[in-house]
Design a binder for these strands. Structure first.
Lengths: 355, 355
DNA sequence: GTGAAAGCGCTAACAC
DNA sequence: GTGTTAGCGCTTTCAC
């Protein structure tokens, strides 16, 4: 239809040009009402008379109006946006929790801002500051260890905060999770009941991650309580990946050829460990027992199925979202700390308990 | 220190109360300058004289000032926020792409808003409208199929858009990806060269997902071109999960006991299929060949390692972010469509090519 | 290199 | 049930 190249070029660059957006005033004019009536139709439709509402809705439809949330948020000091900070994307575990959150938030019309820290406290602080700058209505954090300045800024801001996957002794505000120490203890206790005495453990680096720290602490306590073999070389740190699990497995087996079972504190790592065992011609659980953590998809689908700890990640996410919404909406919370619990799941990658 | 319970209660509820945030004016007063100088110190520090800048920075530090991005964004019509829409969180594949994006965006000081669609075009539309309302500076979409209204709103808004993981014939704006049809064709061709003639394929539902649709189309074309066995029962649809892969495998094997190889168009599903084969006592590749798609972590760590298609997901994410930033910053783009390519990776889950 | 005035687009507060 | 006025906290524009 265009006759010249010039004309086509123009239309192409048009696509890039920011069109002047429709404003509330434009809608108001078309509907023959004042801007505030349009605002009310959008935010509290029940306070607007039926015919007026219809007229406004028609005008909105006609003009393709999308309310500017920056302006609204600035005035109303409410943005319907929540910031979420997680350590890593490379874990289905967080995906499950995030799913629990988005299920709750999207129902309530809230958007999620995502920040990934890679286990860095500095990066976490940056995300928090950025979120506060965007005037999020709430923030969800992973774990209970944070930079001092992160805690300070959050507390000064007065923004509702939920820490997840732990049970903090000194919460910033609210929390939902369970005791990683108890869960890990329970698994090692379970393995002891299965007849294992030389048990290794693989965690994420314990210096940057309180969940990892607590899980190792639970292991150490169980080793003492159940009189298990105690060796530094039975403890390894790696990343929570398939390759990391394989590495952790290799490290422990290298120093402990007699190791009977290895507890990898994440299912993906446990799967990686079993693959490594396969490569070495070792049978699981025949030659060595393997336990995981979190009860992810892979724990149930793996061959052999994985003995693991179910940590109800979906519920943790959903509960975190609900607590945040309640607080945002000014409701009284029965409790600011929710224990989501955990459960040992015995499957085929370890021997069964002896009795 | 507090003497009464009442007093403690007050301090507890204080935590919930929104403190009046520090404003730019407060900083300006403390630093003995005007608000605009504070703004410049924050946004274009090079235009502020050294001593002035120092004084302002000190005041910011002292007051713990965090600039209100709503106000800034409203006035500057720029929010340094980008909306990302992905079909699913339950896939490490997207995690890899998202990682590519956050690596680029966080460097540039941009925040990511996340929307998950679950393959629903309606949900996608909702996210797009919501993002436009938040005045994001750009939007990244997955795939090239969208609701008519989604396209319309995006084009009317003039906001830069990148569609990813496909090479669209009629892009909304920009795109980075590769031909799913060619990639799938190349894999089936490869399998044919490996000596397989009865090859099944498992995809995601093709009605809601153009990538799945294109991959099946590539399979069908290759089946014709290489004179492979053509049967409707060699084609299955499932979800991209371990369990889905097992189901797809089971469905094809049930109708085709003589099937020689199955191409599952995602690695997680391929892994699930191999697990299912193991459960049935079938060896891979001895009894049946299995191919995956995307070259995820698991493809390399699995035993056996997985023959797959590398689709450079990290690069797709990073490139999408870069294209968006360039356009946001008003730079000319050499090309609005980037072909990220793909590569067949031969590993141990299929026989090697015959020649 | 710095400041004063104006206004981004919406909604809170108050009126009728 | 609807309208008027003012202002949220910044940054643009223009001045010096």
């Amino acid at each position: 239809m265009n006759e010249t190249d010039t004309k086509r070029d123009t239309s192409t660059s048009d696509r890039r040009a920011h069109k002047k957006p429709v404003r509330i005033e434009d809608v108001a004019r078309l509907a023959g009402v004042s801007p505030i009536t349009v605002s009310r139709t959008l935010n509290q439709p029940e306070t607007v008379a039926e015919p007026t509402r219809k007229a406004v809705e028609l005008a909105i439809e006609r003009l393709g109006y999308i309310s500017n949330r920056l302006a609204g948020g600035l005035r109303a000091t409410q943005t319907r946006t929540v910031g979420l900070i997680i350590p890593s994307l490379f874990s289905n575990i967080f995906a499950v929790s995030v799913r629990g959150m988005t299920d709750v938030f999207s129902q309530a019309g809230y958007q999620l801002l995502l920040g990934v820290t890679d286990e860095s406290f500095d990066v976490e602080l940056n995300h928090v500051v950025s979120f506060l700058g965007q005037r999020v209505d709430g923030i969800i954090l992973t774990g209970g260890w944070h930079d001092k300045r992160t805690r300070l800024r959050l507390q000064q801001s007065g923004v509702p905060v939920v820490e997840t996957n732990i049970l903090p002794s000194d919460p910033i505000d609210m929390a939902v999770g369970y005791s990683n120490e108890e869960a890990s203890y329970a698994m090692v206790k379970h393995l002891a009941h299965c007849g294992y005495r030389r048990i290794g453990i693989v965690t994420f680096p314990v210096l940057s991650n309180d969940r990892a720290h607590d899980r190792r602490a639970g292991y150490l306590r169980a080793v003492r309580d159940f009189d298990l073999v105690q060796r530094d070389t039975l403890i390894a740190e790696t990343s929570y990946t398939l390759a990391g699990g394989a590495l952790g497995f290799a490290a422990i087996v290298a120093s402990n050829p007699d190791v009977e079972a290895i507890f990898l504190t994440q299912d993906t790592a446990a799967a990686g460990a079993i693959f490594e065992a396969m490569r070495r011609g070792l049978r699981v659980p025949g030659d060595i027992g393997i336990a995981g953590y979190d009860d992810a998809d892979i724990a149930l689908e793996f061959v052999p199925t994985l003995t693991t700890v179910n940590t109800r990640r979906y519920e943790v996410g959903a509960t975190a979202a609900q607590m945040l919404l309640q607080r945002i909406q000014g409701e009284e919370l029965v409790s600011t700390i929710a224990d989501s619990g955990f459960e040992i799941v015995q499957r085929d990658s370890t021997h069964r308990p002896s009795n």
